[in-house]
Amino acid sequence: MTDHHDAWRLLGGSTLVGTIVIDEPGMPWQCGRFLSEPAFSQFKPWFDEITALVAAEEFERFDEVYDLIEGALTLESPSGAVAEFLLHIDQDRAWFRWQDGPATS
């Protein structure tokens, strides 16, 4: 489990996009404060759209939009990159779940 106040890094290639400081550890979702970097501005519209789709319960478009996020960004735990993640960012809050290895069917 993630410790309280662990910092996770969101990267676009080698560029730091933002840091998530965990303040509500739990499983399966980790929640924390999102500290954005200037590079986040290019990805923010995708996260805004994901938030709007979930609020409107338009789940059929979720995968299409989230694929953009997965293709462009990586999430690093304090011990290194994770294989898969599902990340939501809304203003200065982030919540996510992750897997160390690829999902199995």
Rank of each mutant, 00 (worst) to 15 (best):
T2L: 02
T2R: 02
H4C: 06
H4G: 00
D6A: 12
D6M: 01
D6F: 01
D6W: 02
A7P: 00
A7H: 03
W8I: 11
W8Y: 10
R9N: 07
R9D: 11
R9L: 13
R9E: 11
R9K: 08
L10E: 00
L10A: 01
L10W: 00
L10S: 00
L10Q: 03
G12N: 14
G12A: 13
S14E: 15
T15I: 14
L16N: 08
L16F: 11
V17R: 08
G18Y: 05
G18R: 04
G18V: 11
T19H: 06
T19I: 15
I20N: 04
I20S: 06
V21C: 06
I22Q: 00
I22F: 00
D23V: 03
P25E: 09
P25T: 09
G26T: 14
G26A: 03
M27N: 08
P28H: 04
P28M: 05
P28L: 03
P28T: 09
P28K: 05
W29E: 14
Q30P: 01
C31R: 11
G32F: 04
R33H: 09
L35K: 09
L35D: 14
S36R: 13
E37I: 00
E37H: 12
E37P: 03
P38C: 13
P38F: 10
A39G: 06
A39K: 15
A39T: 10
